[in-house]
Amino acid sequence: MSEKFTVDKIVIASIILLLLGLPLLGFSQYVMRIVILMGIYTILALGLNILVGYTGLVSLGHAGFFAIGAYGTAYFMIQHSVGFIVALTIGTLLSGFMGFVLGLPTIRLSGTYLSIVTLGFAMIVQVVIMNWDSVTNGTLGMSQIPKPNILGYDLNLANHGIYYLMLFLLGLVTLGCYTIIHSKIGRTLRAIKSDELATTMMGIHIDRYKILAFVLSASITGLAGGFYATLSSYIDHNSFGFDLSILILCMVILGGMGTIRGMYLGAALLIIFPEIARPLMSWRFVVYGFVLIIMMHFRPQGVLGWRSRRKYPIPGEVKKSYRMVEVEE
């Protein structure tokens, strides 16, 4: 047990070191941009994972939350000249609020019905973006979104500031997901995925937890959206289509639903693949689809979707002595 534990620690520590030192390796801005995109998609996958992987609610509309976060952040930065941190917070909260608004009427839905409603939600968001000219600049999109500026420092690709900002946000979201999942909240979400009726019979208000899952998932997705807006400095309605929702879902499923490690791998694989497969030209999408089919056939739980075989830690490893006391009763 302890052996495996240290192996895990070494793996995690070396990944963190590698990520922190990556800019020192002198990659081009093109490569660094892809790495940052990977980070954004990892955050997106972590967000969707809360709904799909833990709670068992399949959303096909996360492009909508991504768009709300991106447009919210961009709007406040451009129109109200608000600082990056405040604008990103507003975008995140806005997206979380929309998660609440969408979660409230859909708590009675599950399975395909819920997926269709979320799909409709993303479509509505896209149509609103195209038509709400005064806020979203319509189909022209929003351009010249300022780069993040924190405490007077401009963060961009050249000085790697935006890379470290991505790492910071990714670390924050990962830690947040970890602590939530490894608490009674996470247990409840997993229980809901497993059996809603049995969860209710434990005295648990499952509607409340489903909405909470929606809000958390939407907030995280909105956060990624806000960051994406400042990274690309231009957004329009095409950036937030149905294919984006599907891509995030593929990452979650490919990496391993209901795991954090899987989100990192799923996002990395599906972002790298189109880049390294460029020589295949348009065949790459055929290969891409084929790989997904093969994966789902031979490893439906996802690449890293194994169950932990580690002993469940019981604090203080309950002393054996109490057993004597109970026998005496």
Partner: peptide, 9 residues
Amino acid sequence: RLFSDMRVI
């Protein structure tokens, strides 16, 4: 109706 994908504890 256990939570079959979760541990006993």
